[in-house]
Amino acid sequence: MSEKPPNPSPCPDLESLSAWFDGEEEQEVAAGHVEACPECNRKVDAYGVIRKGVRQGLAPANDLIHRIKAACGREHASRLSRGWAPHPFSPLRLAWAAGLVLVAGGLSLLLSRPPRGAQALPVAAGAAALPSAMPVNVVTPAAPKPAALAAAPAGDSGVARPVAAGDLRLVSLGAPPAAAAAVPQPLPARIRHVWVVGDLAAARGIVGRTLPGQPLASTRNGSLRGEVELRDADVVRLVEALQAAGFSLVSPQAPQPGAGQQVAVQGRPVAYAFELVPAAGK
């Protein structure tokens, strides 16, 4: 008969011990072993210190929530100014839905009537319910020959003929999407651009000449950062100037070089934050 060791169960492997600590493996690791084993006990204590340290260290800056809300507020306002609304039954969506219904109605009417030439469909009542900024334009088939027109008695519903795709030229509701996308947009209140530069020292000089007195902070990762408040038009000009100086913009946010016409200049102040990053290998 051998003497019973103080803690007969073997120490669990590290993965099991760690999972047990997280409550993921209650059955596989005996709590009694950890209680009795000084080495495992020490490890579990260390896990506790690590967990506490991570949790405390993960607390974000006090003002992060406010910054996020402010950014979301700007985004919300920007989208509203572009005609976006979050409500599923917003006037815009209702207008589109009404337009679709009218189009469907128009198609149905066309299918049930003989061609009578180009004329306004009876959409006036529906259109009256739409916002005045959203005119409904339904263009029906081109006018048939006068003889056919004369042959068709007024109010005659006649026999439907199939409507070919070419019969309908265009149904539009407000501005077509492509045109809407091309409408210049105002800049947001804050922009952050990352530029890749070939020579950081030269880039510092260029920025110094372009924005006299503008302080630049060197970061530990080897880039330069700055922030300046400019009028939106000046931000557009600055972006063009930096591009012309050989900087390469990698951020997708407007304004983009060569696309200044897509910016609706309103004379508003814009906080322009920029980071100059040396190209890899520089």
Partner: peptide
């Protein structure tokens, strides 16, 4: 120790 945890993390 807890502060050091974040440094090493």
């Amino acid at each position: 120790l807890e502060r050091n945890v974040m440094v090493e993390l």
